[in-house]
């Protein structure tokens, strides 16, 4: 860890002002919320902020109903509180299940909605400064391609980076079509969860739509779709406390035996929380049966590009999608 200046922001404006001085995407100023990603990476010298601004004093820790019938999660709401919130459990079960499948109780007590959105990849080369990594040091090369990449992505990869977005929460947010509410030097704006994270392309160090100075203030969940069923399935080597090898979030509504509405998002296999649009397209208007689920799963993984060690994820993700759809519709 390297020495840094530390300050506490009392208002969102103060926080924005403190951060707005940052000039590059790899900002020299960092907000700290739960700290479970940031402090970890600072200890590894992967994050080396000159200034750390504690935002825990900001009034962003509420869960509130929106006039539109949705739910607003303050950026500082703790993952444990969101997952155990009665309305979340009832109307947004996929989010509750996704959060509870991740990390450990201790971590979930600290981790925040905003921090989780911005957690960094678990690519081992990103986390060790002895190795080249385009995400950590743009232009230095990608050590994972041709290295140990068993955990890494098969969808949305580029020749510069194949790192997975490791979050469970974010997969559910994409399936729920949440929006991310942002405040910055030039005011407020909202970005759909599906567009918040960026593909690596040739700039893997740019991970989200956030600009210097911008802070996440909340995440808004739209009004729940009446009669829809939700399910989150996470597959991993061991039974707990491990990032996903493959996960699937499903929001689905049947009508007269046919699929009227379906949203599918994938975790563990994409460079960002992955919306499986092709799969949704295959299913809409079709009957909810095993054959159609498999067709959808094939469609979802059609463009997958495996690296040396992670080809198994393609079949695994397909099975994950089929089972998640099956479980969601069995309940339906």
């Amino acid at each position: 860890m390297e020495a840094f200046k530390f300050s506490r922001a009392a208002t969102v404006d103060q926080a924005v002002a403190a951060h707005a001085g940052a000039t590059t995407a790899i900002a020299e100023t960092r907000f700290v919320a739960g700290g479970t990603t940031l402090i970890d990476l600072m200890k590894l010298s992967v994050e080396r902020p000159k200034v750390v601004v504690d935002i825990n004093g900001l009034p962003l820790d509420k869960v509130e109903a929106t006039p539109e019938g949705g739910l607003r999660l303050g950026a500082l709401t703790r993952n444990a509180d969101v997952a155990n919130h009665d309305v979340v459990k009832r109307d947004y079960a996929v989010l509750s299940e996704a959060i509870l499948s991740g990390a450990s109780p201790q971590l979930r007590n600290m981790a925040t909605t905003g921090g989780n959105l911005l957690q960094r990849t678990r690519c081992p080369y990103f986390r060790d400064t002895a190795h080249a990594c385009n995400k950590r040091e743009p232009g230095s090369g990608c050590s994972a391609i041709g290295g140990h990449n068993r955990m890494l992505a098969v969808l949305g990869v580029s020749s510069d980076c194949i790192a997975t977005n490791p979050s469970d929460q974010n997969v559910a947010l994409v399936a729920l079509e949440a929006t991310i509410d942002i405040q910055g030097p030039s005011g407020k704006r909202s970005v759909p969860a599906g567009q918040f994270h960026l593909l690596p392309g040739t700039t893997p160090h740019r991970e989200t739509a956030l600009q210097p100075g911008e802070i996440i203030t909340s995440v808004t969940l739209p009004k729940p779709i009446a009669g829809s069923k939700q399910f989150y399935l996470k597959l991993r080597d061991r039974a707990a406390y491990e990032f996903a090898l493959s996960s699937t979030a499903v929001v689905i509504k049947l009508s007269g035996g046919k699929i009227e509405h379906v949203r599918i998002a994938l975790g563990g296999v994409g460079t960002k929380p992955w919306r499986a649009l092709e799969a949704e397209h295959e299913l809409t208007g079709k009957s909810a049966d095993a054959a159609n689920f498999r067709i959808a799963a094939e469609a979802a993984m059609r463009d997958a590009k495996p690296a040396s060690e992670n080809g198994y994820k393609i079949e695994l993700a397909k099975r994950c999608i089929v089972r998640a759809l099956t479980n969601a519709t069995v309940q339906a």
Binding site: R122, P124, Y125, R127, D128, A130, H131, S143, G146, G147, H148, M151, D237, R238, A239, A240, Y241, E242, F243
Partner: peptide, 30 residues
Amino acid sequence: GLFEETIYDPRNGHAINDNFADYVVPTIAD
């Protein structure tokens, strides 16, 4: 039987999964 293996990166010899997130050991749930 199911999880543990220290993996050396053949390009540099580093035990690349040298931490408890990447070197998987059983949890209580296992």
